[in-house]
């Protein structure tokens, strides 16, 4: 604490950032909550409808629940890459002798490319006519039976729009996990190896146990980021064909800015916030339970 601080100084430093934050983030959250109790198209007078929007969302809207289910698939696919592949690769990388820095740099590259560019890219990766990169690759390794228009088939479209989201941040999470693994004391692993532990046992009982706190941080980041995923599905398929790749976020966006149903869109937005808070809460509960049993 500074000796010569004063209430004025605190106010001078704190108020501008706090005000910006309130105007751009906190107040809009409250405003969404408020709007979710109204019916409003932005032009005619607002009409208070009580909990009608919530009732409509929870019991009267099939599209909402389908979109909610799709969002979970989207998160699952993203986590497969950002936690699964990332952890696997971070581990492998510790066994590699040369070129680790180059691998790290290359792996981070997709993270700096804009989602619009990624959407353009994957539109061509998945395309069937003309033959895109994925179908071309399948053809080259003799799996041409699997070739299909990935973005227009109902069975494949949801996973197809989810993969780019997982793909672009795999390197980022790999780096975080790699840094954690590198910090595991070498003596621990050495001792285990001398006792005849296999690589898998070393990983399971020493490395993974040691990096658990970082693993949970990564889980929170990856989960909340993919729950708000929007750009790539919106640009690639706009939720289609039909509503086979509709996520809560794309549904909310269209409800707001295509149907100009601001009240109902706000209700869905409130649900998305609640979902993120619940996800973080669940992961933290998981952590506390893990600490007790470990």
């Amino acid at each position: 604490m500074l000796r010569h601080r004063s209430k004025t100084a605190v106010a001078v430093f704190l108020l501008p950032p706090l005000l910006t934050y309130v105007v751009a983030v906190l107040f809009p959250i409250l405003q969404s909550l408020f709007l979710s109790f109204f019916r409003w198209d932005g032009i005619t007078p607002m009409e208070f409808v009580g909990i009608d929007n919530y009732r409509r969302m929870l019991v009267g809207d099939d599209v909402f629940w389908r979109a909610a289910g799709h969002s979970l698939v989207y998160v699952a696919v993203a986590l497969f890459f950002q936690l699964g592949v990332a952890l696997f690769l971070a581990n492998l990388l510790t066994y590699v002798r040369r070129g680790r820095e180059t691998v790290k740099t290359l792996f981070l590259l997709p993270a700096i490319v804009s989602t619009v560019a990624i959407a353009l890219l994957f539109q061509r990766v998945y395309s069937f006519e003309p033959v895109g990169l994925l179908n071309g690759a399948l053809d080259a390794i003799g799996l041409d039976d699997l070739a299909r228009p990935w973005l227009s088939e109902l069975d494949t479209v949801l996973v197809s729009v989810s993969v780019p989201e997982g793909w672009r941040f795999t390197g980022l999470y790999m780096l975080i996990l790699y840094a954690a693994i590198i910090a595991v004391p070498a003596e621990l692993e050495e001792a285990a190896r001398l006792d005849g532990a296999s690589s898998w046992q070393v990983f399971r009982h020493i490395r993974f146990a040691y990096i658990r706190p970082v693993w949970l941080t990564t889980m929170i980041m990856a989960t909340t980021y993919s729950l708000r995923g929007f750009d790539i599905p919106y640009l690639l398929t706009n939720g289609g064909p039909g509503q086979a790749s509709e996520l809560l976020t794309t549904y909310m966006y269209k409800t707001a800015f295509t149907s100009t149903d601001f009240g109902y869109a706000s209700t869905i937005a409130v649900f998305i916030v609640v979902q993120c808070v619940v996800a973080v809460g669940a992961i933290l509960v998981l952590r506390n339970r893990g600490d007790k049993t470990a």
């Binding site: 605190v10 704190l14 983030v25 969404s32 729950l227 966006y253 800015f257 706000s266 916030v273 993120c276």
Partner: peptide, 28 residues
């Protein structure tokens, strides 16, 4: 650095923002 009575609460307020999805701000 300066610290004040509600420093931790204000910090908490900012940290919460880490998980707030941007979509919530669009309509308002």
């Amino acid at each position: 650095v300066l610290r004040f009575r509600w420093s931790n609460a204000v910090m908490g307020l900012f940290v919460v923002g880490l998980v707030v999805p941007v979509q919530v701000a669009l309509v308002p």
